[in-house]
Computed example of a mutant assay.
Amino acid sequence: MSDDDARLDEVAAELLILPPARFTAARNERAAEAGGAVGRRVAKLRKPTVAAWAVNLLVRDGQLGEAVELSRALHEAQDDRDAAELARLGRQRRQLVSALARRAAELASAAGTPLSSAMADAVEKSVNAAIVDETAAAAILTGRLVAAVDLAALDGDALASSVAGSLPAALPTPPPRDDLAARRARKAAERAVREAERARAGAEREQASVEKKLDAARERADRAHERVDALRADLARAEDDAAEADAVVDRREGERAAAADAVHAARRAVERAEAQRDDGGDG
């Protein structure tokens, strides 16, 4: 690899962990700083998809190391035709992929760009590719992805076009695995699985708690609505009673006015009768 290639790889790795919204401005700035042939190559770097950027964050966070180690153990089990070990590692692989995909989503959210469901699915496919295929793992572990990797769609130069800068041919050949190293790798993978299972159990407990609280809230809301309906019915009856009482008051006030008029007329009649009586007595 030439010095220019190495420099391009270094700059690309630094740029491709920046939030995608900042990539273009930062790339142009770094291209101007580098100048010359390297600068021109930097200026041509593609902006990463959000999923590719999240996987780059996962690589920088060091979370793919155990996944790659599990991949090697899986290949060993395949080579040895160990069906029981292969089944166990397959379960661990699926659990580890899910845990690492969640970790990538956490890193992306912490960096200010939450993943959509489509992007989260692309991240999970890329992590799975790193575990299943050593060539894909070598590309992904550069931390220079510009596009997510999907083994189902991997053909031709698709892998090369998914990586900025140089593309490693394969993972470095690991030193011979002794029993201690194998046990350590297995324990690391099992620890990751346990952590994923604990996270899943915690999430399930939280979901159950939320469901229970939701049921209680719905029940309280139903009772409140029933009380509101009852109060509205009581209010309607009370309004009818009040209107009827007002009508009775109006009638009674009319009766009182008529009675007052009758009393007044009777008094006048009494006064006239007394006056006539007095006049008669004097004659």
Results as ranks from 00 to 15, higher is better:
3 D>Q: 14
8 L>I: 03
10 E>G: 04
10 E>Y: 10
11 V>A: 02
11 V>H: 00
12 A>C: 04
16 L>V: 07
17 I>P: 02
21 A>C: 12
22 R>P: 04
22 R>K: 13
24 T>K: 07
27 R>P: 00
33 E>P: 02
33 E>I: 12
34 A>I: 02
34 A>Q: 03
43 A>V: 09
43 A>S: 10
45 L>K: 01
51 A>P: 02
51 A>C: 06
54 A>N: 01
55 V>M: 02
58 L>V: 01
63 Q>W: 07
69 E>H: 09
72 R>K: 08
72 R>N: 10
73 A>T: 05
74 L>W: 02
76 E>Q: 08
80 D>T: 07
82 D>P: 00
87 A>D: 08
88 R>Y: 05
88 R>G: 06
88 R>F: 06
92 Q>E: 12
94 R>M: 14
95 Q>E: 15
96 L>Y: 01
97 V>N: 01
99 A>Q: 10
99 A>V: 10
100 L>Y: 06
103 R>C: 05
109 S>D: 06
109 S>L: 13
114 P>E: 08
119 M>V: 12
123 V>C: 03
124 E>V: 04
126 S>Q: 02
127 V>F: 00
128 N>Y: 01
129 A>F: 01
129 A>L: 03
132 V>C: 04
135 T>C: 11
139 A>K: 02
140 I>E: 00
141 L>W: 11
143 G>V: 00
143 G>K: 01
144 R>I: 06
146 V>T: 09
151 L>H: 01
154 L>S: 03
155 D>L: 03
163 V>M: 01
167 L>V: 06
175 P>I: 09
177 R>Q: 15
181 A>S: 12
182 A>E: 14
183 R>S: 10
183 R>C: 05
188 A>I: 07
190 E>T: 08
197 E>Q: 15
198 R>K: 14
201 A>W: 10
201 A>G: 04
202 G>L: 13
204 E>T: 07
205 R>I: 06
205 R>F: 03
210 V>F: 10
211 E>P: 05
217 A>T: 09
217 A>Q: 06
219 E>T: 09
219 E>W: 04
220 R>E: 14
225 H>C: 13
225 H>G: 12
229 D>N: 12
231 L>M: 12
231 L>A: 15
231 L>K: 08
232 R>L: 14
232 R>Y: 01
232 R>N: 13
234 D>L: 09
237 R>H: 07
239 E>G: 04
241 D>G: 14
242 A>N: 15
243 A>S: 11
244 E>V: 09
249 V>S: 05
249 V>R: 09
249 V>W: 07
251 R>M: 07
255 E>T: 11
256 R>E: 09
256 R>N: 08
257 A>N: 11
258 A>P: 04
260 A>I: 05
260 A>Y: 13
261 D>P: 13
261 D>G: 14
264 H>Q: 14
265 A>W: 10
271 E>W: 05
271 E>L: 08
272 R>V: 13
277 R>A: 11
278 D>T: 12
278 D>S: 15
279 D>S: 11
279 D>P: 08
281 G>K: 13
282 D>S: 12
282 D>A: 12
283 G>D: 15
283 G>W: 14
